[in-house]
Computed example of a mutant assay.
Amino acid sequence: MSYDEFYVKSVIRSLPDWPEPGVIFRDVTPIFKDPRATRMVADAFIQRYINSEISHIACIDARGFLFGSILAHQLNLPLVLVRKKGKLPGDTIHQEYQLEYGSAAVEMQTDSVGQGDKVLIFDDLIATGGTILAACTLIKKLGAEVIEAAALIDLPDLQGSARIQEAGVPVYTLIAYEGV
């Protein structure tokens, strides 16, 4: 089965005016109710990274966990979590970042990656890029290198992918939605 962008886009739910007026929320959760779409997306990412130099997959809370865990399993790589602050046990470091409507923070456990590790950051969607850039900062603070940031969806009008690339991190996504 090969990747079919039109089919996967038909499965993604677009919810107007959520979580606030004027926003169209791109809901990836219906993909997981559709085994064909799940397989297409997973296979597309697996094919991209199967022969890559990545040593770890860092997935972002919470929808990034879904495909991140599939990729880590299929590629036989360690999965590390980037979570909202206060959600991980043990020694952690955190990084604050700006949202369209305020600020937030993400954290990682201090032993999740280290010197010499080559990390793929995975999330479901790239909007303003703040979460992925915060994850990049944490990974670099822990001594590892970010090889690429990947997501199922890019919202290019919000400039997140451009910001991530300007920070020196390549970006790969399967689907782009113009307009917000």
Score class of each variant (00 low, 15 high):
H73C: 13
P78A: 00
L152V: 14
Y177R: 11
T137S: 15
T29H: 08
E178I: 06
K118S: 09
Q109A: 12
Q98L: 15
L81C: 07
L71P: 02
V11M: 06
F45T: 03
L77G: 04
I46M: 07
P35F: 02
E5Y: 03
F122R: 04
F45W: 04
I60E: 01
V8M: 09
A167F: 02
E148L: 10
L88H: 06
K9I: 06
L155G: 02
A42Q: 07
I139F: 09
R39N: 12
G102R: 11
K141S: 13
S10K: 13
Q98W: 14
T92I: 15
G102D: 12
A62F: 11
V28S: 12
C59A: 15
W18T: 07
F122D: 01
L174E: 05
V11S: 02
I54Q: 08
G68P: 11
S161Q: 04
R36G: 00
V11E: 09
G90W: 04
V180N: 14
T173Y: 07
A127V: 10
I175T: 05
W18K: 02
N76P: 04
G179V: 04
G64N: 08
L75M: 04
Q109D: 05
I12C: 00
Y97K: 03
Y172V: 07
A167Q: 13
G114M: 01
L174V: 03
L155I: 15
S161I: 02
V119C: 07
L152P: 06
I57V: 15
G168K: 11
H56G: 00
D124W: 08
I70D: 02
I153S: 04
E178C: 00
E20M: 12
A167I: 04
